[in-house]
Design a binder for these strands. Structure first.
Lengths: 139, 139
DNA sequence: GTATCTGCAAAACATTTGCAATTCT
DNA sequence: AGAATTGCAAATGTTTTGCAGATAC
């Protein structure tokens, strides 16, 4: 599901975001990470590389990225707000054993449900939980 | 979507939960409420009826209900943990204008996705956001 | 009388806000 | 210099934990 984007700096500019060092590194981490990181894991990963980095900046940056459509929030667990740089419609599966979150493709046609006929749908999320193939084997 | 359950006391007993006053009132509120309440709204609603009620008890009780399959968590928004006494498979639509969360039916067949073939799916959530019919009219 | 249940107070986290220092141009 | 960005420290909000008192069987 993850697309490796070569020119992250240009990506930011195209989205209308001035690419500071912090923003670039955060965005690169998001794009290259497979783990749908949280603010905390972004901060922990980057703080060795950018020792002055603060969590506030990570929060600010994630808000900025969201507002400009660069990332989507993955809210599969109630105590962790994760982020995904792949904003296309796809599903998320979380393993309750190892905690990993996997992407999976979905048909991009919304189900036709008559109860929804009069609502305007702008955003949709499909979340599954269970035991992943890996953990299933190791038990 | 909400089923009116007549004998809530028996419902609790069947689930293996001793029905205290607090638990009963909380469960009744959950079953009869259409709004997918949060801990806070449960507490606010019931504290006039049970003046000694504490939020800790509401948290404890919701945990207990979850563990015994009486409620499911609706995590459609990242800053509010809501609960639904209807644990059957159905979707949730949240209006970003008025904040209301609507239920809607879903076919109970999971989509067959080859990437999921080796995972064991135990739980699934389908969340939509947008503008509800009501808010659409009033604008 | 022993178990369980409740609820206060404090602790633990996650996130937001205000503001001063820093950086960029 | 002027505007935007960063990051510290404090505030806020939510959930958890420890424990003492109340309640149920």
């Amino acid at each position: 599901m993850k697309l490796k984007i070569k020119n992250t700096e240009e990506e930011l500019r195209n989205a209308g975001i001035k690419p500071s060092v912090q923003r670039l590194k955060i965005y690169e981490y998001l794009v290259n990470s497979l783990e749908h990181p949280t603010v905390d894991s972004i901060y922990n990963f980057l703080s060795s590389e950018i020792p002055t980095l603060s969590k506030t900046t990570v929060y600010n940056t994630m808000k900025l990225f969201q507002d400009n459509g660069l990332v989507m929030v993955v809210n599969i667990e109630d105590n962790e707000t994760r982020f995904d740089a792949d904003t296309s419609f796809h599903g998320h599966f979380k393993c309750t054993e190892c905690g990993k979150v996997y992407d999976f493709p979905l048909p991009n046609t919304q189900p036709k449900i008559k109860e929804l006929a009069n609502h305007i749908v702008k955003e949709s999320h499909y979340y599954l939980k269970g035991i992943c193939a890996n953990c299933k084997l190791n038990n």
